[in-house]
């Protein structure tokens, strides 16, 4: 029996004029690293890295559940609203959390839609961060599926979403972590995965902004798994090529949820990414 070092707390911030009670977890000390979960999931995706003593010896990892996700409640009145995540609301939420937690230029690490918004912030609000780790992130991914499948009264959107995203998990992933990863999708609230996918599959505004990212002051490193059918290595390569100075690592045996589906396999790539942030930051300084 052991008690994990992860500490969970709540903070209330204002986004789009309304209060959001946000759950966040933190572990470690030193350089702050703000971690963003994927669509349809929550902070638990980061628990393996947050429990990694070698990583947390010099990095303070902070992860939060987006409103509607995990232990963060939707805002008052959600019962009559249609949840559709937008780039603007996503950015406002992240910056509100950075302010509320007094994070001084954290590294921003995001996966999937979290990686997409990390690149948006690299383009639009780089001065608030010291570097960006964009995991399974690309400029734009139109949906080959109908996002409305995942919010309908005659079927369980969470179970369908989990079955769909299982296509993005590597067969090298340990069985237990494959299913822990899928469980989060199964638990996702009604319409939440759909609302996240709306942002991910319909907003292509990042494409025109990639060229304005300045990696000399804020390094950008992309990481992509070969088994990711959603953001393929080709998608990540195209995106990295459009960002002057960005770097890319391809993980041959991992998929779309690397920190969650196969933590041991992802670990060296994340440590390498953190080192790139440090090296580039020092060089720029």
């Amino acid at each position: 029996m052991s008690i994990e070092p992860i500490i969970g707390q709540y903070v209330t911030v204002k986004v789009a004029g309304t209060l959001r009670r946000i759950y966040f977890e933190a572990a470690g000390q030193g350089r702050p690293v703000l971690c963003l979960h994927t669509a349809g999931a929550d902070t638990r995706q980061w628990r393996h890295l947050m429990n990694d003593a070698e990583i947390t010896a010099q990095n303070r990892l902070i992860a939060f559940d987006m409103p509607w996700h995990g232990k963060s409640l939707p805002p008052e009145g959600f019962q009559t609203d249609e949840y559709m995540l937008t780039t603007e609301a996503y950015i406002e939420t992240i910056l509100a959390v950075v302010d509320a937690l007094s994070l001084d230029k954290p590294i921003l690490a995001g996966c999937s839609m979290g990686g997409r918004i990390a690149l948006q912030l690299a383009a639009l609000n780089a001065e608030r961060f010291s570097g960006f780790i964009a995991i399974e992130a690309s400029d734009f991914q139109p949906a080959w599926y109908d996002i409305d499948w995942f919010h309908r009264p005659d079927a369980h959107g969470g179970e369908m979403g989990a079955a769909l995203v299982s296509a993005n998990i590597s067969p090298f992933a340990p069985e237990a972590e494959r299913w822990n990863t899928l469980w989060m999708f199964m638990q996702s609230g009604p319409g939440v995965f759909r609302g996240d996918l709306s942002f991910y599959t319909r907003d292509d505004s990042l494409i025109a902004r990639l060229g304005q990212i300045d990696t000399t002051t804020t390094p950008v490193h992309l990481i992509v798994g070969a088994y990711d059918l959603t953001c393929t290595p080709e998608d990540a390569r195209r995106t990295a090529d459009a960002i002057p100075g960005a770097t890319l690592s391809v993980m041959d045996e991992l998929g779309h949820f690397p920190m969650s589906e196969h933590p041991e396999g992802f670990r060296p790539f994340f440590i390498d990414a953190l080192a790139r942030m440090h090296a580039s930051h020092s060089k720029a300084a």
Partner: peptide, 12 residues
Amino acid sequence: ARPAAGFHDIFG
């Protein structure tokens, strides 16, 4: 048992 990427799923 461990298909190559793309062969690991029907949608792949």
